[in-house]
Design a protein around this nucleic acid. Sequence first.
RNA 1: GGCUGGGUGGCAGAGUGGCUAUGCAGCGGAUUGCAAAUCCGUGGACCUCGGUUCGACUCCGGGCCCAGCCUCCA
Length: 463
Amino acid sequence: MLTLYNTLTRRKEEFVPIEPGRVRMYVCGMTVYDYCHLGHARVLVVFDVIVRHLASLGYQVTYVRNITDVDDKIIARAAEKGESLRELTGRFIEAMHEDADALAVLRPDIEPRATDSMDDIVSMIGKLLDKGYAYDGGNGDIYYSVSKFEHYGQLSGKRIEDLRSGARVEVNEAKQDPLDFVLWKSAKHGEPGWPSPWGEGRPGWHIECSAMSTGCLGAHFDIHGGGMDLKFPHHENEIAQSEGATGQHFVNYWIHNGFVQVDEEKMSKSLGNFFTVREILQRYQAEEIRYFILTSHYRSPLSYSDDNLDKARGALQRLYTALRDSVAVDEAQPVPEYETRFRTAMNDDFNTPEALAVLFDLTRAMNRSRQRGGEDAALLAGTLKTLAGRLGLLQSDPELWLRSRHGAGAEGPSDDEIEALIARRDQAREDRDWAEADRLREQLTGLGIVLEDSAGSTRWRRE
RNA sequence: GGCUGGGUGGCAGAGUGGCUAUGCAGCGGAUUGCAAAUCCGUGGACCUCGGUUCGACUCCGGGCCCAGCCUCCA
């Protein structure tokens, strides 16, 4: 039985899909005006793992992750670069796909773009106007009237009175209430615009997601996810819009992932303390990043540091080393004991650290078995590969992985140069010239190569 | 000020009302020409003050501290 933490109720609940055997899930994706940073990577990986786990439980999952390809920042960036909106967003969508692919993130089933969803957006705003939830600000802008929606604040636990006294809201005389938010912004001169009954303009950020999710999954669906920072106001506003427009209950389960932190602070653009995925890929392998993300529970903070990435590397080395030394039975049915423990961990609100612990217990059992010449080492290796696969890990060839360079920007000797030095050392060892053999090994160590002598052969990997 | 979530061993990070997390690092041993890898063994923790309880790191309350949201943000 799958239980998950529902932000809406603030407790773990049993997951019951609306339609038996099917899951409809929507996640707020990126606003594409720059490269993905580690915070974006976390969302991609976390929900990818959730989708994989749901699929492993036998659910037929429809996963929608949107792309916001029009907003003020995008418009400003495009103007700055002298590019069209479509050119700029096209470039960064491609970059995002490259990063996601590198991180072994499976493509969502549907990836709607805001600019391709204008009909849905305009029609939803129209419904909100008809039903009295929205009003024309008199300047061509359409606003949502927060006080008209009686459940406003249910997701974030905020009350309208508290928000008013909080008073960090911009002053805008077109709004009837400072808490009201924009649904449609009229295009100022030179700004890109789309036609609507209220004139040329563009949608507000919140309405995009309401329209795209409802358009792809219907008025009522199972899971809606995104980063913690979207809980308020973005997701709160989505509920107000969608429920206002359709009159139906919007989403059953809300899932929010925690932040990536740097030095105890949220990694963010405004603080300037962010690292892009491609930047980190210069020094680390994508799988090391993915593993690092999964070492922490998705709702906990994840502290970024080279030290922690190094630890991820060490852990993966242990796993891949074990896999390398056993012949994995690829099509093996997982050993029930480990499969059950793994599934139980994942069923408990997607507890990936616990699931990883199962993988390490399994690895120890496998190494032990192999050392004793046990028959079940191959079966355990197959189990490891299968279970790790559900986390999107350990799918590379172990030998190649262990020998690969650490990141695209890494330097060092070529495989051929390494092999040549090892051949010389093997000769010295055969001649029992230990001094020469050790000298060559030290030379290789200096080049970042670790040797592993075994009966009759020498294996190597990059440290 | 209001609203979330959290404070666990050297580091990272799960979890449980009484019983080994796990990984990295440390220590002892096996193995090895020496290493590496691996295995065996081992030290080390639960912010603070009260309460509930036979028993609390785990439940409840106060305090202190940290992060986040209340403005664009994954």
